Simulated assay, not measured.
Amino acid sequence: MGHRKFSAIIGTIGPERRASIDAIKEAARADAIAFNLAELRKHRHMTQVDLARRLQRTQATISAIEASEDNLLSTWRAAVEGMGGRLELVAVFDDERIAIPTSLTGTVPSPTRPNPGISEKRGAR
């Protein structure tokens, strides 16, 4: 009568299209992951001792940082850099994403565009 069962529609999607859809869903899930510092460290397959060595701190210090509910941005930056990454801070609005400097140099990475056609703006210092 003009409508089809969802299972019938899904059944018509080919394996290449299904793989594409699954990749998009996985990317969306990855963007939505929120970790505290301990979870991030574990996700990167590091122990507290590993991170402590890289940051020239004690394991007890790393434990205390991870137990804190309110770490400074500089603490997050040092920890992420100690894990081999870089910390990027982005202010997200409905119409734009603005990179916020996280270093003392005030360097702002290039803005990212959530949707084509949205103007890019740089964050103020």
Results as ranks from 00 to 15, higher is better:
residue 19 A to S: 08
residue 58 T to D: 06
residue 32 A to S: 15
residue 17 R to W: 01
residue 10 I to H: 08
residue 39 E to D: 09
residue 93 F to N: 08
residue 17 R to F: 02
residue 19 A to W: 04
residue 27 A to P: 03
residue 81 E to F: 11
residue 113 R to K: 05
residue 95 D to T: 14
residue 123 G to Q: 05
residue 24 I to P: 02
residue 114 P to M: 02
residue 15 P to K: 10
residue 57 R to V: 03
residue 39 E to L: 06
residue 21 I to M: 07
residue 106 G to W: 12
residue 2 G to D: 15
residue 6 F to V: 15
residue 52 A to L: 06
residue 88 E to V: 13
residue 36 N to S: 03
residue 8 A to V: 09
residue 22 D to N: 08
residue 15 P to Y: 03
residue 48 Q to I: 08
residue 78 A to H: 04
residue 104 L to T: 12
residue 120 E to P: 01
residue 82 G to E: 09
residue 63 S to C: 06
residue 58 T to N: 09
residue 16 E to W: 02
residue 43 H to Q: 15
residue 62 I to N: 04
residue 14 G to C: 10
residue 31 D to W: 10
residue 41 R to M: 14
residue 111 P to V: 02
residue 28 A to Y: 13
residue 28 A to W: 10
residue 39 E to Y: 06
residue 122 R to I: 12
residue 55 L to A: 00
residue 5 K to C: 00
residue 63 S to K: 15
residue 103 S to K: 01
residue 99 A to P: 07
residue 61 T to H: 12
residue 16 E to G: 01
residue 43 H to M: 11
residue 109 P to F: 06
residue 42 K to T: 14
residue 17 R to D: 09
residue 85 G to M: 04
residue 10 I to S: 06
residue 57 R to E: 08
residue 14 G to V: 07
residue 17 R to M: 10
residue 88 E to H: 02
residue 61 T to D: 08
residue 61 T to F: 10
residue 37 L to Q: 10
residue 25 K to T: 05
residue 102 T to A: 11
residue 19 A to H: 01
residue 115 N to G: 02
residue 71 N to Q: 12
residue 53 R to P: 00
residue 74 S to A: 10
residue 97 R to N: 09
residue 33 I to H: 10
